[in-house]
């Protein structure tokens, strides 16, 4: 059995799950996975399902700084990264950090921003630093971007190209809460106000320790084979032009490690891979033009279902 040490991150997840953010288990868990694996999350769902609430709650309980950008078509890259302003007193340019210099950045409706702005943000996400006017500023650690986009709205949007989508560790929806829960929410009102009063439950050091532990989670040869066969299957799938890249496979492994860690294990089992395969893999698939209408998540799920798990 794995060493039993009570990890504060797991406790936070449980607290959030059972007390605050009911009905968002899957999205919450995946967000935690992204956080632990050092990736970013794209929440793809209709407005009003609690994407923002999720991000807010997360930042509050983790005791992390939180920044938010509401993306619009006139949003400029400097609105995200920050800009240098001339200080008359000192006679020098002073760099004013943009919202990206927070531990958790919520980029709402990321597909409404111009490609140039999107590109600047995504570059920062990947590089974890911002270079403005020749000066490079490192972004804080931990750093998590939770971007949201509305999959239904098409007018006035700039859909993220595949190469940009690839930078998100995982893409997931939130989904409607269960009936009973939704009735309860209607009855007692949202939790928006409560979230502001949430006390941090862990420090950022705890988070960094946890991240270190995640990296130490063992990925056995059988699981490497399994992940490889999964990736290979996406590359050979008749409906797809291209499957998962090597970065996709790396992300899959990292996410699976985080999933194992959250499940209190120091080794990955096939179920971890299966859990993260669709959120990590689906958005990286490029279907053939004649299969454009197919849901990528379903294609990915069918690939996962068709592969036998290593059992011995």
């Amino acid at each position: 059995m794995p060493p039993v040490h009570v990890c504060p991150i797991r406790q936070v997840l449980e607290t959030l799950d059972s007390e605050i953010l009911q009905g968002k288990q899957r999205a919450l868990r995946l967000t935690f996975i992204a956080l632990l694996a050092g990736g970013h999350v794209l929440l793809e769902d209709l407005p009003g399902l609690g994407k923002t609430t999720l991000a807010l709650a997360l930042s509050s309980v983790l005791g992390l700084s939180f920044g938010r950008i509401q993306c619009t078509s006139d949003l400029l890259p400097s609105d995200i990264t920050g800009l240098s302003v001339y200080e008359r007193d000192s006679g020098r340019f002073r760099f004013i950090k943009g919202p990206i210099f927070n531990n958790i950045l919520l980029a709402d409706e990321v597909n409404r921003a111009m490609p140039k702005t999107q590109s600047a943000m995504l570059e920062a996400m990947e590089e974890r630093r911002v270079t403005v006017e020749g000066t490079t500023y490192p972004l804080p650690d931990p750093f998590l971007v939770i971007a949201t986009q509305n999959p239904v709205e098409q007018i006035g949007t700039f859909p993220l190209p595949e190469s940009q989508l690839d930078r998100f560790l995982l893409v997931t929806g939130v989904g409607y809460p269960p009936e009973q829960l939704e009735k309860e929410i209607i009855r007692s009102g949202g939790i928006h106000d409560r979230i502001r009063d949430l006390k941090p439950l862990v420090s950022s050091e705890d988070l960094l320790t946890a991240r270190q532990s995640v990296r130490e989670v063992q990925l056995g040869d059988k699981l490497v084979d399994y992940i490889f066969s999964l990736v290979a299957a996406t590359r050979q799938h008749p409906y797809l032009i291209s499957g998962l890249s090597t970065r996709g496979a790396l992300n899959l492994a990292a996410a699976a490690r985080a999933a194992a860690y959250l499940d209190d294990r120091d080794f990955v089992i096939p179920e971890d891979v299966q859990l993260v395969a669709v959120p990590v893999g689906a958005h990286r698939l490029a279907p053939r033009p004649e299969h454009e209408t197919l849901a990528k998540t379903e294609v990915m799920q069918s690939i996962v279902d068709s592969l036998p798990v290593p059992r011995a």
Binding site: Q218, G220, D221, F267, V268, P270, A312
Partner: peptide
Amino acid sequence: AAIYSAAIYRD
């Protein structure tokens, strides 16, 4: 499953 996986998936 727990005992078996712990061995097998740890190579």
